[in-house]
Design a protein around this nucleic acid. Structure first.
Lengths: 195, 195
DNA sequence: ATAAAAAGTTAAACTAGATTAACATCATTT
DNA sequence: AAATGATGTTAATCTAGTTTAACTTTTTAT
């Protein structure tokens, strides 16, 4: 599928745009390709775009004072990728977003957002719905992190995002789960013995 | 301040409603008072309202299979309180929301939400903004839980919500922080020695 | 005012997960 | 094909936080 179609198809699952509106929308977003290793956002920069992923994979991570990477999320096809806090307030980002594969995105620029919502009020609704879903997912993750053990979180992750484990190195999955790569390795070898 | 004024004042910080719109809004929300101990939502019920807290305090918590309470958030004056996942999808709630003080709220019913957005499109924007803020806060909390020790999380909590510690029992704060009350007690006694 | 219940503290023994370090495997470049 | 760097594994030791249990303090109800 052509990438613009993919974006419009995703949006059409939540709101119905006219053809005219679709054209306006496409005129206001940027289509862009990144190579593996490139950054969409760097910690300290202002996040100017919210990116919709067409293909590829990104990781959003926080680098703490000890230089340790903490992965907050992965984004693949039909997901969003941005440091929302920075995007909303246009202040320096807490997170980095880096491509872990060659990645194709559509970017919604902050400076055209108001215009966009004025011209297509339905998009206000669209983003409300997207945000609701993201918030629900985020709150569920907080609870999981508290009430599940590392092993349970790993199994839950595999269940929730079955395609990601195959394409992302284990040490990044460990970081996402909040454990060390050594401990994830231990969990996996125990799981194999158990079967 | 009269409670309706308090709600309108809060909304006016994000969008400007006309007097007419304010009246429509008030005609579509329920004003309600709960006693300490009462539930706004019980795990398994469908969450029919999003509640805006005028006064008092609620806790939202998840009860796990071992019967342990995990507090996801506290809500006080000018905050929201609901199981969003359940509210949005109108499916059984994962969480309980219980008043830990006598609590006064305005409730936005799910079944009038569509009507409300149709009559006052600005509210669509209002809820988008609220959701953005909530999502940012939620994502920051995930990272804090991974990258900070229990002691650091406690200090951060005191800093972020200075009024809550005084009115909420320690064991609930421990639950919010994801630690036992015994360990929080230890952290506090160490902090006193350190000064 | 007193009893009962709820909340908070302390300390000893324990465990999930971290750290360190040495080694093994896989992928990429030359 | 060899060499280099990135990724993954195993095992020993260590630590942040849990569990259990006995005790103290505060709050609530009678």
């Amino acid at each position: 599928m052509e990438s613009a179609k993919q974006l419009l198809n995703y949006i059409s699952k939540h709101v119905n745009l006219t053809e005219k509106e679709e054209l306006v929308l496409l005129s206001k977003v940027n289509h862009r390709k990144y190579l593996k290793g490139q950054y969409l956002v760097q910690q300290g920069d202002v996040c100017k775009y919210t990116s919709f992923v067409i293909s590829g994979c990104t990781k959003m991570f926080y680098m703490d004072n000890e230089g340790q990477e903490h992965i907050a999320m992965f984004s693949i096809k039909d997901w969003w990728s941005s440091d929302l806090g920075s995007f909303i307030t246009q202040t320096p980002a807490d997170y980095n977003i880096q491509c872990i594969e060659n990645t194709e995105v559509f970017q919604f620029p902050h400076h055209t957002q108001e215009e966009l919502f004025k011209e297509i009020p339905k998009l206000e609704r669209f983003f409300r719905i997207i945000l609701e879903k993201a918030l629900v997912a985020s709150q569920k993750r907080i609870i999981r992190n508290f009430s599940l053990t590392a092993k349970e979180r790993y199994l839950n992750f595999k269940n929730l995002y079955p395609t990601i484990e195959q394409r992302v190195p284990q040490y990044m999955i460990a970081s996402y789960l909040g454990i060390t790569k050594e401990f994830l390795s231990k969990i996996k070898s125990k799981l194999i013995l158990e079967q």
